[in-house]
């Protein structure tokens, strides 16, 4: 066990997978000599050389499209898109090809690639550097969409993503990159893609969140315990698509109350799907309307106003109390 940041944990996952498997190659902008703008790939070029850590020309669509070809060949390319706000160039290659080539070829070809991108607010960045648009990818049949919530889950999910036989979009909350350290085992650890987990047990209320929203959800749960004597269960989705609804349905069947939290805009966001799954699977157990605490249906404002956009502990506590009164 070593205490490390999420940046170090993802670096560890990449390093170990590259050492284990020469099919794993990295490509992206500034990921080689510079180690990536967030330093996630730091030092990998020294160990694995320029043949396996490619500083690409500046073209996101080409990074994704070239990775599709590499993956068809049988390699395991891991792309870094510098910020998820620039990943829309890749959308065409991912939606039209990465997600479909297994299907189009009747299973003869596959595209086992990973596309990593930092997402979300919290680092006082410029426009295009703070969005949470996971719903775009989650809406595409054929892709998997994964968002870890801290160093240990990031390491374990990255290993799983690289080994996954299908294309995985891997969003990294940039606000979590260096926010805290966590014990990460030195030996191999994976978390299966498509599996959520309970990060706090509780009998009165279910909070469903992922990524950067897990920490405010846990803080809100502590506050509710301290001030209201309410025990909230917190579910960390880890994978957005395919969405694992087993734990959330079991939990809500017990608690009868749910709050869904994400940083992404509200309308047509992941919360819409999560809420519907709860309605379909646990309607008769619900004691109150399901609450959503989300970003507004806006472009995330520049950072001077960002804190008013991103869900916080107060909003989560307020939403929880609303579901508890009815």
């Amino acid at each position: 066990m070593t205490k490390m940041t999420m940046v170090q944990a993802i670096n560890l996952a990449l390093r170990q997978e590259m050492a284990n498997d020469d099919r794993v190659v990295l490509l992206g902008e500034d990921i080689g000599r510079d180690g990536g703008v967030f330093r996630v790939t730091e030092g990998l070029i020294d160990t694995f050389g320029t043949e396996r850590v490619l500083d690409t020309p500046l073209a996101e669509s080409a990074i994704a499209g070239m990775a599709v070809g590499m993956a068809i060949y049988g390699l395991r390319p891991v792309c870094e898109i510098q910020f998820s706000g620039f990943a829309y160039h890749c959308f065409h290659q991912l939606e039209n090809h990465a997600a479909r080539l297994r299907w189009r070829s009747q299973g003869r070809l596959s595209v086992p690639m990973v596309l990593r991108a930092p997402y979300g607010g919290g680092v006082r960045a410029l426009e295009h550097h703070s969005e949470s648009r996971e719903a775009y990818w989650a809406h595409t049949p054929g892709l998997k969409m994964v968002i870890p919530s801290g160093p240990r889950s990031a390491r374990a999910l990255m290993v799983a993503a690289i080994r996954d036989p299908d294309p995985v979009i891997f969003y990294e909350a940039k606000g979590l990159y260096r926010a805290f350290r966590e014990e990460v085992p030195d030996e191999e650890e994976t978390i299966p893609i498509g599996r959520s987990r309970i990060v706090r047990e509780g009998r009165d209320l279910t909070m469903i969140a992922y990524g950067a929203m897990i920490r405010p959800a846990l803080e809100a749960a502590e506050e509710l315990r301290a001030t209201d004597g309410v025990e909230a269960e917190v579910i960390d989705l880890l994978t957005i698509s395919p969405l694992d609804d087993t734990l959330m349905l079991q939990s809500v069947t017990r608690t009868g109350r749910a709050v869904v939290i994400h940083e992404a805009p509200r309308s047509f966001g992941p919360g819409a799907e999560i809420t519907t799954r709860l309605m379909e699977g646990a309607f008769y157990y619900l004691e109150a309307p399901i609450a959503r605490v989300t970003g507004y249906d806006l472009i995330i404002p520049y950072f001077s106003r960002e804190k008013w956009f991103i869900p916080n502990v107060r909003r989560i506590v307020d939403a929880a109390r609303r579901t508890l009164v009815s």
Binding site: S61, A62, A64, G65, M66, A67, V68, G69, M70, A71, I72, Y73, P77, Q93, H97
Partner: peptide, 8 residues
Amino acid sequence: LHAVGLAW
């Protein structure tokens, strides 16, 4: 682009 990746 796929051909570029395959060739690489």
